[in-house]
Design a protein around this nucleic acid. Sequence first.
DNA 1: CCTATTGATGTAAACGCTTCCAATAGCGTT
DNA 2: AACGCTATTGGAAGCGTTTACATCAATAGG
Lengths: 333, 333
Amino acid sequence: MARKRPTINDVAAASGVSRGTVSRVLNGHANVSLAAELAVRRAVIETGFVVNRAARSLKTSRTGSIVMVLSEPQERLFEDPNFSVVLRAATRRLADRDTALVLMVAGDRGGRDRVARYLRGGHADGALLVSAHAGDPLLEAVEHSGIPVVACGAVLGRESAVPYAAADDRGGARQITEYLAGLGRRRIGMITGPLDTPGGALRMEGFTDVLGRKATKRMVVHGDYTQAGGERAMRTLLENAPALDAVFVASDLMASGALRALHDAGRAVPGDVAVGGFDDSAIATATSPMLTTVRQPLEEVAGEAVRLLVALLDGDRVESVVLPTELVVRDSA
Amino acid sequence: MARKRPTINDVAAASGVSRGTVSRVLNGHANVSLAAELAVRRAVIETGFVVNRAARSLKTSRTGSIVMVLSEPQERLFEDPNFSVVLRAATRRLADRDTALVLMVAGDRGGRDRVARYLRGGHADGALLVSAHAGDPLLEAVEHSGIPVVACGAVLGRESAVPYAAADDRGGARQITEYLAGLGRRRIGMITGPLDTPGGALRMEGFTDVLGRKATKRMVVHGDYTQAGGERAMRTLLENAPALDAVFVASDLMASGALRALHDAGRAVPGDVAVGGFDDSAIATATSPMLTTVRQPLEEVAGEAVRLLVALLDGDRVESVVLPTELVVRDSA
DNA sequence: CCTATTGATGTAAACGCTTCCAATAGCGTT
DNA sequence: AACGCTATTGGAAGCGTTTACATCAATAGG
């Protein structure tokens, strides 16, 4: 056992051609005779050869891997619990390129430094930023590293710098706000996410897009994307505006908290107060009543982000993309 | 710009010692004078040197990365939506070793082959299996690759082969079943997960551990870890055993579906029927009433799994560990 | 004062691959 | 028949490390 791993030399020997030719076949270069190619392919299978990435990488100074950087200050990931979707979409997209996906969490300062060092060291060909934050020093570090970067989710404040793929947060917020207004609701409040996150800011903008002047300051309360925060915010909102008849909550998780607060306050949903969420996460169908909410095409977003990055790696120019959201009507509004 | 990355030679030149000595400092070898060490460390900072992993790996045939393999036939990840926790724990644990975490999803046949090739190619020093399945061909492939493997979550059926870190599914199921019985409930049903998953099988065993003879076949219905499945299973259960006064549901997500079915059937929870969940996921506090459930120490599980793997990499012998769960009492029971 | 012994360092040989360059063979042209 | 092509191939140089080995100075023991 523990036989040495076969190298390109073994393949060359087994197929009766030179190392150079084997390499050419492996990399799909032109100018290789059919006979040689066939012989090499057979030998590869025979010997069970797998290319040594380290050696290749050393020579080509390409690593065959990209790094997904999670800048995750709190518990929230991509401002949505359903992170597995993002991951799956990304890996799927990368599969045929046989590019490896390495994961780094840049939660704290140490994490950031590690990411920066990793990138500066040229250990990855590109970086996929997930839920980057406004003024995040990580962003600068990544941009500075000189490797192609794409963000998954809009990058707040520096729109032009880093290309991104994102769901249309603003449009989605507009959709649901219009829906609530279309229901005949006249006093519509909102519980926002943290305004230093793209989703937080954009969903609020969508809300005010629709309500304009009618959206008074007192009808908007800021939450923190947690359930408890949503509950708290709802209570505040009820104090500020007891007559409110609808509320748009910037995440399903917060909305579940809001639902609880409304229940405790004796308000019927959607009878007295219509509630709209955002995300269409698993929670949306676990609450009672089930949440009317906005679905984000996370899978597509992640897929597009990877597509952009791959294009960048291939030397193409790319444009950021914004994908449409979808209103999902259930029972809460 | 685009200055060439500094190599170990640049550091050697800048610090006035030889390449060899620089390498010795970098790898913490003995027999290096203090003066040399200091000079090298300064030069490293000055030049902004970052070791080239490819070159190192080529020479040492260690890669400095481990691969986390998600064998995820369905949507479920680690049989729990809160996958980010696992990820965070793993990355944190790996951080100080500067070992990279690469992620692979072995969803389908193609994915399995890719993983197998990756491992056979020696592209990773170790593998972390997440939610491995009974009879999963992946398992064999991984074991066959000859690199150290640890599973996150018990590995059904082949307990001895692969060391693992897992939550005490069986014990947790026992805890909540005993709790339900302790409430005075006499007709306790169960909705299980898929029995070919460790969690699915073990949670059911815990249930029958407690109820023994009293657990009739008709009181146990098999679910699929989805909300809709939970709802369906609950309806079946109500048909089979209309007099039931408690039910243990093997996941919170399914429990939320069960809650809905009970509500539709006009049964009060916990008045008529007490409901116990499993996982203590975000959903547990979004339902109404909030779920009494069993918390799995996922963070610790992942941390332990990584610890085991690291120990294995360092050549130590390891024992599987099982971590205790915790009963979380809320409103549904 | 000579010689083992030790500690510190320099040197050079790989590790497995890609790719540039030169060489060869086959072939159509003049 | 000599020539210039082109298509294909072999050969060899390196990519940036680590590490075994050689070297050398300094110290200790006799």
